Computed example of a mutant assay.
Amino acid sequence: MTRGYLRRALVPLIVLALAFGPGLSGCGYKRYVQNSTYDYGTKQKSDPKMLGSRMYGTATANPYQHDNNWIEYSSILSANVSNINGVAGALVFLTDKNAYVGMTLDWTATGTKKTGGAGSREQDNTGSNEGVYNVDNGSPYWNNQRIAGPYNSYFTVNDHNQISSELKQTIAVQIRRIAPTVQEVHISANQEFVNHLVQYAQEAWAGRPLAPWHDSFNQLVKHQFEAGNEVPTPINVQKLQHAGGADGTIRPNPQH
């Protein structure tokens, strides 16, 4: 893990030390932590993270809610969500209707996943102790087209419904504060989803338009949030399959 991860992991311990200073009892500390963004699992009735209406997930009865007309990567929202306790990194995309968040977790906050303990984690990070990436075969190689993997990676959650409602609410409130016209906020830490999203982000980082990948993006979010049947072909594979025109713009297969 990086030094940044270790630094973030130490913050709750520092808060703990300060909290038991003069003027704050053990009960007061417990309540303080439960109300903070270091705890997404306690679900106290008066927890400020859950006050007000639900800000994430399906909010309309529109059957075409994920038929987005345009998409853009938001560096501002991505940075803001990445700074939320418990989130290792996030990619946020805005459309004419929604905000979509793909993220990885770092377990610096408790209760980020609704059920299951350390044994249910999808990543095996023991290879770092042996100086390898893949502890099963000893390989030191990492696919740089992926933001998360099964080895030596920040953490993912296969089913987005297993992410704490408190964490999702915290993220959605932050997004709506900056982008108040968003109709719905959809959040996932699914490994396949975030690895697809990083390729759309790479297009944006390189200054290339996302319009050619509009249909592919809609197919991806429908698969993740509407249980769609098909996952789009990754952008890097589409680029290998379908060459661009004379102007150098990559044009994906119309079927995607």
Rank of each mutant, 00 (worst) to 15 (best):
P212K: 03
L18Q: 12
R31E: 10
P232D: 13
Y5N: 08
D124C: 10
A109Q: 00
Q162C: 01
Q191E: 05
N134H: 06
V81P: 02
V132F: 09
Y5P: 03
S75A: 14
A211I: 15
V33Q: 12
H242D: 13
G248I: 07
N253D: 14
H196M: 07
E203R: 15
H66G: 02
S120V: 09
P12Y: 01
S128I: 10
S153A: 07
A88K: 02
G28N: 10
S153Q: 06
Y32M: 12
T58Y: 07
V87A: 07
T233R: 15
I187S: 10
P234G: 09
V182G: 04
L197S: 05
V198H: 02
V135N: 09
L10Y: 07
A79W: 10
V221E: 07
R31P: 02
S75M: 06
Q174E: 10
G102E: 04
E72W: 05
G131D: 00
N137H: 05
I250E: 13
R208P: 07
N144C: 12
L13R: 13
G149F: 01
Q145R: 15
L6D: 15
H214A: 05
S120P: 01
N134E: 08
N158C: 08
G138N: 02
P234M: 12
I147H: 05
A211T: 14
H223L: 04
V231K: 11
F155E: 11
V81G: 11
H186G: 00
L197E: 01
T95L: 01
Y40T: 03
N80K: 14
I14C: 13
L18R: 15
D136S: 11
S46N: 15
T58S: 14
K30I: 09
G4K: 08
Q241T: 09
A19E: 11
Q191S: 09
L10K: 14
C27K: 14
H256V: 05
G102L: 02
D136I: 04
T58A: 14
S120W: 09
Y200Q: 00
S153T: 12
C27H: 12
V87L: 04
T104K: 13
N137Y: 08
G52Q: 05
Q202E: 03
Y154A: 13
S128E: 10
A246N: 04
A99Q: 11
V101D: 02
T115F: 05
I147N: 00
N218S: 04
A243I: 07
F93E: 03
N218G: 01
D39M: 01
V15R: 15
P12R: 00
E72I: 09
T37C: 12
N253L: 03
W70D: 13
V132Q: 14
V132T: 07
A59K: 00
G131W: 06
M55E: 02
T249N: 12
T60Y: 04
D96L: 00
G117H: 09
G117C: 12
E166A: 15
A201V: 04
K30Y: 06
E72K: 11
D159Y: 02
G117Y: 08
Q202T: 10
K239N: 04
L6M: 13
I71Y: 08
W70V: 06
R31A: 14
Q44E: 13
G52V: 08
G131E: 06
A99S: 12
M1S: 15
T249Y: 08
T42L: 01
D47V: 00
K113L: 08
I235F: 03
